[in-house]
Simulated assay, not measured.
Amino acid sequence: MRTRAKICGITRIEDVHAAVDAGVDAIGFVFYEPSPRHVTVQHAQQLVKHIPAYVSIVGLFVNATSDEIAQVLAEVPLDILQFHGDETAAQCQQIARKHQRRWYKAIQVKPDLDVIAEIKQYHQAGASAMLLDAWHPELKGGTGHCFDWEKFPKLDIPLILAGGLTPENIEDAIKTTDAYAVDVSGGVEFAKGIKDQQLIQQFMQGVQRGSAQ
Rank of each mutant, 00 (worst) to 15 (best):
I69C: 12
A64C: 14
E68T: 11
R37V: 02
T65M: 06
Y54P: 00
E33G: 09
F61V: 01
V72C: 10
I57Y: 01
A53F: 10
P36K: 12
I69S: 14
H38D: 11
L47V: 00
A53Y: 07
G59V: 02
I51K: 06
P36R: 11
N63T: 07
V41S: 08
V39L: 14
V30R: 04
S35C: 12
H38Y: 12
V55S: 09
P34M: 00
S66I: 13
F61Q: 02
N63G: 11
H38E: 03
V62P: 06
H43W: 11
V62Y: 03
H43E: 15
H38M: 02
V41E: 05
N63K: 05
A53S: 12
V72R: 05
V72W: 07
V58G: 11
Q42S: 15
S35N: 10
Q45H: 01
P52N: 04
F31P: 04
V30P: 05
S56R: 14
N63D: 15
Y54D: 08
P52E: 03
V48Q: 01
V62E: 01
G59I: 02
D67F: 09
V48P: 00
A64E: 14
H43K: 15
Q71I: 10
I57L: 07
A70I: 08
P52C: 05
A70R: 14
F31N: 03
R37T: 01
H50D: 10
F31A: 04
L47A: 00
Q45A: 10
V39A: 14
V62M: 06
I57S: 03
Q45S: 10
V41Y: 05
P52W: 05
A64L: 11
Y32W: 13
Q71L: 15
Y54F: 12
L47T: 02
S35H: 13
H38A: 12
Q46D: 11
P36E: 02
V58F: 10
A44T: 02
I69D: 12
I69W: 09
Q45R: 13
K49D: 13
H50V: 03
A70P: 02
R37N: 00
H43R: 15
S66L: 15
S56M: 08
R37A: 02
H38G: 07
L60I: 12
D67H: 13
Q46F: 07
T65A: 09
A70G: 14
H38Q: 07
Y54A: 12
P34W: 00
L47E: 02
L47Q: 01
P36T: 07
A64Y: 11
I69T: 13
P36W: 04
P34R: 00
F61M: 01
A70L: 11
D67A: 15
Y32C: 06
S66D: 15
T40Y: 00
V55C: 11
L47G: 03
F61I: 02
F31T: 03
A53L: 10
A44C: 12
V48W: 00
I57K: 10
G59N: 08
P36Y: 05
V41W: 04
L60V: 15
V39M: 13
P34F: 00
P34Y: 00
P36N: 09
I57G: 04
P34N: 01
S35Y: 07
